[in-house]
């Protein structure tokens, strides 16, 4: 039986007008950390991304929205090359560069790349190990054996993920014993333990209840000061609440990419307007 998250949180679930995180002008945004240029992407014979060009700035939360199957998750998984694991998946044209380095260059070590781009998945996926070992895993595989360094990193990461107070007394119990929301925050703690520059979140709240969702959203806002976050969501309110920039995808194409406020208040493209106002999707 999952334990309910501690509950006296303000439920920031709005149904009418979304609350915006912070107004950012795209032209004033810090220099782009991730640059995607004319990216085409194929799954076998199917072309799933068409000429995507996008510049994701540093230390901001960028949300990818769009109806199911529009390619937003695929694009996200392109960024840390998780798509390499899928047979027949390939980049057709264009390039992705992070800090000016093309991530598909032959001398790029995908393992080094993934160490710098943490990822949180749609369904929380803690390892069948203790909470402590889950968080320490990333450091252990990098060869860290020093107990005090691990202890310190585990505590810092769990605090960073807002989970420390809930689990500090049972660090050595299984991570699978936590509730859904706690598991997802454990996954976030596991991700930030290796201190990536960028955190990719693939619909992190889609399997969670509203209370757990609110906690994660709050966490995202806190993490923004230290990490660049890219979040895929199909929940428009969520994008509105916690992102600075929003990209709207439709049928594998980038339709509009603007500051979140612009997308929701006065979108340029009629398709975007139709989607954000709930007329389709």
């Amino acid at each position: 039986m999952p334990v309910m998250d501690s509950s006296n949180t303000d439920l920031r679930i709005r149904t009418s007008m979304p609350a915006f995180a912070s107004p950012v002008d795209i032209h004033q945004a810090p220099r782009a950390l991730i640059e995607i240029e004319n990216l085409d992407f194929h799954y076998g014979p199917h072309k799933v991304l068409h000429e995507i060009s996008l510049q994701i700035p540093e230390r901001q939360v960028t949300a990818f929205i769009g109806p199911s199957g529009c390619g937003k998750s695929t694009l996200l998984r392109c960024l840390n090359r998780m798509n390499d694991l899928i047979d027949g998946a390939r980049v057709g044209a264009g390039r992705i560069s992070i800090r000016g380095i093309d991530i598909h260059r032959s001398d790029v070590d995908v393992i080094e790349l993934r160490k710098r781009l943490g990822m949180v998945f749609q369904k929380s996926n803690p390892f069948p190990k203790s909470i402590y070992e889950n968080v320490a895993y990333g450091l252990r595989i990098q060869g860290v054996r020093d107990r005090s360094r691990l202890d310190e990193a585990v505590e810092r990461s769990l605090q960073g993920a807002g989970l420390w107070d809930e689990v500090k007394d049972r660090l050595h119990t299984s991570g699978l014993g936590l509730s859904g929301g706690q598991q997802q925050r454990l996954c976030i703690a596991r991700t930030i333990a290796v201190e990536p520059e960028i955190i990719l979140m693939d619909e992190p709240c889609s399997a969670l209840d509203p209370i757990a969702t609110a906690k994660i959203e709050e966490l995202i806002k806190e993490l923004r000061s230290k990490f660049t976050i890219v979040i895929v969501t199909h929940n428009m309110q969520q994008a509105a609440r916690c992102s600075d920039l929003t990209a709207f995808f439709y049928l594998g194409r980038l339709v509009e990419f603007s500051p979140t406020r612009t997308i929701f208040m006065n979108p340029v493209n009629p398709q975007t307007e139709a989607y954000v106002s709930g007329r389709f999707g």
Partner: peptide, 24 residues
């Protein structure tokens, strides 16, 4: 998902096998 999570954390394939997949 175990494998994905491990790889996304920057583990190599053999590390993933030894530390995650075989124990599981």
């Amino acid at each position: 998902s175990f494998k994905e999570a491990s790889l996304a954390l920057g583990a190599s394939r053999i590390q993933t096998v030894v530390r995650i997949i075989l124990p599981a």
